[in-house]
Amino acid sequence: MTDQKEMESASHHVVSPKIYVIILFALILGTAATVWASFLELGPWNPVIALAIATGKAMLVVLYFMHVKYSSKLTKLTVFAGIFTFLTLIGMTLADYFSRAWGQW
């Protein structure tokens, strides 16, 4: 039975509140950093940094608050599938918009 393993590994791993506190501080720190970075003059890097920090924060939430770090492979795969389809939608639509600007050919 293939799922036997999945089931066992998914049995609850209780994350200690200490980790939650650390993550909380990291997130608050990230928020401060992203606000601070937005006031710097970084040219094209401004949105990149804003998104990178946001992604970092989201990762912390997903991995620790949402327990994905301690979850089964299936859950990880699910998260990955979501991100992948999301990027497909954005990426392929934007590809059309950007290449429109390249002119006729």
Partner: peptide, 19 residues
């Protein structure tokens, strides 16, 4: 999840080029 959405909304809507 709702929190994560907000993290992105904050970065995208509030913090465009504050400098």
């Amino acid at each position: 999840f709702v929190d994560i959405i907000w993290i992105y909304l904050f970065a995208l809507l509030y913090l465009i080029s504050r400098h």
